[in-house]
Design a protein around this nucleic acid. Structure first.
Lengths: 190, 190
DNA sequence: CTCCATTATTGACCATGGTCATTTTAGTAA
DNA sequence: TTACTAAAATGACCATGGTCAATAATGGAG
């Protein structure tokens, strides 16, 4: 017989997440330690891992949530009509994604689902991002010879490339905008 | 007074690398344990970290070496004249890069140098890859409205995107070739 | 209300990467 | 050959993520 999840479980989980958010707020994602989370939440270490398969799963959850907020922001925007507007619209998201090296690496690692049964939050946001871009590009006055879906995948590829390059000490002299502009212009213009 | 590096140092380093290669050969990159390396090489654990700042630096060295071999292979090839040929030429490299999830993640993490003074092997191979592509694309009959350098960066971006997507359980029904073809056709064709 | 199967929690313990004060060795100047 | 010093090697120890057998709490059946 399968029983419903207890109230207690949800409370514990909420406390663990709240403690994590608090630590991230104060010290950043990279500095989060499971021991500290557990101490602040008032649970045992084992409890943490009963709720989250590993530390990365918690991070996937929290970072995925932040990305979703940014995507909400994107959806509230008017459809961009120029490459400039598209680039500008993507900046808040890209700023968050590159706010910490640790965050960027984790996002890349979790951007694809390792198995169908374990699609993580970040992987879902990547799908959602493609959908939003696709909708935009279907209405935007760019090239017509390829599908909006393919255009969207390209935008995602170039955004990732631009973020990665901007982390590189050899190349981070430009802003994200000036880096992304030539890519997307060459990719989207008829 | 600064003394020259001792012969002993080079020998120890060589033994550590040889032991690592042997373990990787047998069990794969992901299964490499510093303890095992050190045991096989007959040194103390501390010695390992006197030679390599951390485990990732060793991996960067070995994986960078493998990528370089593949780039040697590319340079031995005739300049591709079609997108098909280009895609085909890139397959051995992409096969290696995606041979293990661990390898792919590490490559992404080290594809850019964190600081100018610490450019790793993998970061160098990314630069070299761009140079090769740039030379190819300058001679290939593709679009003429953007520089070969920009074309090359785009190819790298799409290759990365294709590899990442193929790791994703939701999308890995296609081969690398059929995934990469539409990207590069849309990117390179006049 | 009591019993008890199921679910949740616990914390001692493990695995593994990484540190550093101490010891050993190589090579040079006398 | 000896004495000496910088470089190299050592291994006990630490930090941190993660496991699991044992224990406790929950809530439904009777």
């Amino acid at each position: 017989m399968v029983r419903a999840q207890q109230k207690r479980t949800l409370e514990t989980r909420a406390r663990l997440i709240a403690a994590s958010e608090e630590i991230i707020e104060k010290r950043g994602f990279e500095e989060l330690r499971v021991e500290d989370v557990v101490l602040l939440a008032g649970t045992a270490k084992g409890t943490f891992f009963a709720h989250f398969k590993d530390k990365d799963v918690l991070m996937d959850l929290i970072i995925g949530g932040r990305i979703d907020q940014h995507l909400d922001g994107l959806e509230a925007l008017a459809v961009p009509n120029t490459v400039e507007e598209l680039v500008e619209a993507l900046m808040p998201l890209s700023d968050f994604m590159t706010s910490e090296r640790y965050v960027f690496d984790l996002i890349l690692r979790y951007s694809g689902a390792a198995a169908v049964e374990e699609i993580g939050h970040i992987a879902l946001t990547f799908g959602r991002q493609i959908e939003i871009l696709e909708r935009w590009l279907a209405k935007a006055p760019f090239r017509q010879d390829i599908t909006p879906a393919l255009q969207a995948e390209g935008v995602q590829a170039f955004l990732t490339q631009a973020m990665a390059t901007n982390f590189c000490a050899l190349h981070n002299t430009q802003t994200m905008q000036t880096r992304l502009m030539p890519y997307l212009t060459a990719w989207l213009k008829p």
